[in-house]
Simulated assay, not measured.
Amino acid sequence: MKICIYGAGAIGGYLGVQLARAGVDVSLVARGAHLAAMRANGLKLLIGDEERVVHPRCTDDPSELGPQDFVIICLKAHSITGVLEQMQPLLGPQTRIVTAVNGIPYWYFYKHGGALEGSTLESIDPGGRQWRELTPQRAIGCIVYPATEIEAPGVIRHVYGDRFPLGEPSGEITEDVQRLSEVFTRAGMQAPVLDRIRDEIWLKLWGNVCLNPVSALTHATLDVICSDPPTRALSKAIMLEAQAIAESFGVKFRVDVDRRIEGARKVGAHKTSMLQDLERSRPMEIDPLVTVVQEMGRLTRIPTPSLDAVLALVAQRAKIAGLYDGTVLPAPEAKIPAVA
């Protein structure tokens, strides 16, 4: 089995080490100082006091690798469209694409059913290019729960977690998704195969849609946001708006909103990925985590006033920092009741 990890950063590097140690023929696509360090010294993973080093094939030119059985995309979601041409040499007739990204994936409405079957979402897939060039038929969904970080070029530190739930857009338990789950399990990770992968996508996005932008605006950690009554209330309001949208698509939430917020609070003094990106001057994942929910709200005509307000603020904050160049739609004008 040949697996290419496209975007061997914190999560991709963690996967690369684990899969290589399990004997998988794994290749990593990376760039810059991180790639140079991996080529020179191997890829190092720090888990507690343990140090794991592997020497997988690493490149910034995917054409060197040839067609793969699986391509695991570990890029930030807003970066995918920019590398579609470079990915093509990796795609053979049977290649499956595993979307290990935050937020709503490009294939969301494939095998979805209903009025929006086959629709694309402009905020995450401009012009529908991912849909056309990667094709939804190749897609396998993957939710990323571990927390990892690049401690230095070529060095990944594992913070917590090992779960990567997988699922076909159709809900079928296919041979491909079972094979991938078995490989992940052999590599020391949990990869349950789900027949309702969209439920799990929304469960993770449910927290990201509010906690990420609120943290970027306030610079507060999860424990503070979820404990302080005003920011907890704002987060809950955004989550309820997102829940209404998701449930209109048939999504089922296995926990209620207060339990989801409480789970985030118990993570402790953790900085969200969006706050980390702001502090490190990296492009911020506003569209796949927040704008896309607003877009889906417009499609379903479900109002999102709390989300609209926070999205407008965080987008402007990111633009001032030079970390976002997207377009956010203004919220609908409020109707002021007439005075008798």
Results as ranks from 00 to 15, higher is better:
residue 142 C to G: 05
residue 237 A to L: 11
residue 177 V to W: 09
residue 230 P to D: 00
residue 233 A to H: 08
residue 165 P to E: 08
residue 175 E to P: 05
residue 165 P to I: 10
residue 223 D to N: 15
residue 180 L to I: 10
residue 142 C to Y: 02
residue 205 L to R: 08
residue 212 N to D: 07
residue 136 P to F: 01
residue 242 A to H: 03
residue 165 P to T: 01
residue 238 I to H: 04
residue 237 A to F: 05
residue 150 I to N: 00
residue 145 Y to H: 14
residue 188 G to P: 09
residue 185 T to M: 06
residue 211 L to A: 08
residue 139 A to M: 13
residue 193 V to Y: 13
residue 230 P to Y: 05
residue 197 I to P: 15
residue 195 D to K: 12
residue 177 V to S: 09
residue 229 P to N: 06
residue 206 W to D: 04
residue 238 I to T: 01
residue 202 W to N: 03
residue 183 V to K: 07
residue 200 E to R: 15
residue 235 S to C: 15
residue 210 C to N: 10
residue 233 A to M: 11
residue 242 A to E: 09
residue 146 P to F: 13
residue 213 P to N: 04
residue 220 A to W: 14
residue 177 V to R: 12
residue 174 T to P: 07
residue 142 C to M: 15
residue 213 P to R: 03
residue 234 L to S: 04
residue 197 I to G: 05
residue 189 M to N: 03
residue 159 V to K: 14
residue 157 R to L: 04
residue 164 F to N: 11
residue 149 E to D: 08
residue 221 T to V: 11
residue 237 A to I: 05
residue 224 V to M: 05
residue 207 G to A: 15
residue 151 E to K: 15
residue 234 L to K: 08
residue 202 W to A: 02
residue 141 G to W: 06
residue 197 I to M: 15
residue 175 E to K: 14
residue 213 P to K: 07
residue 240 L to A: 05
residue 222 L to P: 00
residue 204 K to D: 03
residue 144 V to W: 07
residue 159 V to E: 09
residue 184 F to K: 00
residue 202 W to F: 06
residue 158 H to I: 02
residue 236 K to Q: 15
residue 209 V to I: 13
residue 150 I to H: 00
residue 219 H to N: 15
residue 180 L to Y: 11
residue 219 H to L: 12
residue 161 G to S: 07
residue 188 G to S: 05
residue 206 W to L: 14
residue 159 V to T: 10
residue 226 C to Y: 03
residue 231 T to C: 10
residue 145 Y to Q: 09
residue 175 E to M: 11
residue 190 Q to W: 06
residue 211 L to Q: 02
residue 222 L to S: 00
residue 224 V to A: 09
residue 158 H to P: 02
residue 172 E to Q: 15
residue 154 G to W: 12
residue 187 A to H: 07
residue 227 S to A: 06
residue 175 E to V: 14
residue 204 K to I: 00
residue 194 L to Q: 03
residue 172 E to F: 07
residue 200 E to Y: 06
residue 193 V to I: 10
residue 152 A to R: 05
residue 144 V to Q: 02
residue 188 G to C: 05
residue 187 A to G: 10
residue 216 A to I: 02
residue 141 G to H: 06
residue 243 Q to H: 11
residue 182 E to W: 08
residue 200 E to W: 01
residue 219 H to M: 07
residue 174 T to I: 04
residue 143 I to H: 04
residue 147 A to T: 12
residue 241 E to I: 00
residue 195 D to V: 13
residue 237 A to T: 11
residue 201 I to D: 00
residue 168 E to R: 12
residue 213 P to A: 03
residue 197 I to H: 10
residue 142 C to F: 04
residue 195 D to T: 15
residue 218 T to E: 06
residue 149 E to F: 14
residue 146 P to H: 03
residue 216 A to E: 02
residue 137 Q to G: 11
residue 208 N to I: 07
residue 194 L to A: 06
residue 185 T to V: 13
residue 203 L to D: 10
residue 138 R to N: 01
residue 199 D to S: 07
residue 200 E to V: 13
residue 218 T to F: 07
residue 213 P to M: 11
residue 188 G to Y: 07
residue 243 Q to S: 12
residue 225 I to D: 00
residue 189 M to D: 00
residue 209 V to G: 08
residue 150 I to R: 08
residue 182 E to S: 12
residue 227 S to C: 00
residue 243 Q to W: 08
residue 232 R to Q: 11
residue 168 E to F: 11
residue 173 I to H: 13
residue 231 T to N: 12
residue 203 L to F: 14
residue 142 C to S: 08
residue 201 I to T: 09
residue 169 P to D: 05
